[in-house]
Amino acid sequence: MHVTRLAATMLLSIALTAPLTKGLQAEELLGDPDRGKYVFRSAGDCMRCHGWPADGRTGVHLRAPPGSNLRDSALDAEALAEVVRCGRPGTAMPYHDRQAYKDEACYGMTMSDFDEDDRPIQGKSIRDEDIANVVAYLQAHVIGRGKPTLEECGEFFDDPEAGACDFLRQR
């Protein structure tokens, strides 16, 4: 994985300006937040870098590149879905649509547009409806929230006694 600052800046600007050429439209994004929580928790491996509260910190793996703080995210549903689907080339955020970069549906680019060292990273495959579910979960339970709370932690793990919440009990 080669992440250069230059590449990251360039591609981020593309990500924020490129029109959506394909992908989930607003009416398709009415996902199920409960199912989305499950996907976030297990199927998508999101927690490794974003942590369970998606703050890019809490519960992040020691050797994972800390992900962005989604609690502060300004992205709307379509933009969130695109990032999950296509990843953020030049950063450690992987793409989760196994068809990504086979055509120009992601930021108008295909895999051959990237230098070998800067190619987007493939993450675990997530189906379109589950991408919508994850986005629904982020919008319902993550974005705009402040610091993680004990109650939220217990709800996330469906277990008020979850060990991941210990630090909040001690506070």
């Binding site: 994985m1 080669h2 020691l62």
Partner: peptide, 23 residues
């Protein structure tokens, strides 16, 4: 990556930044 002292909690990993393999 700067972190406010109030946000540092024992029991939660505190790296103060990020890294990637560069080759």
């Amino acid at each position: 990556q700067e972190m406010a002292a109030d946000d540092v909690l024992p029991g939660v990993i505190f790296l103060g930044g990020t890294y990637a393999s560069s080759n």
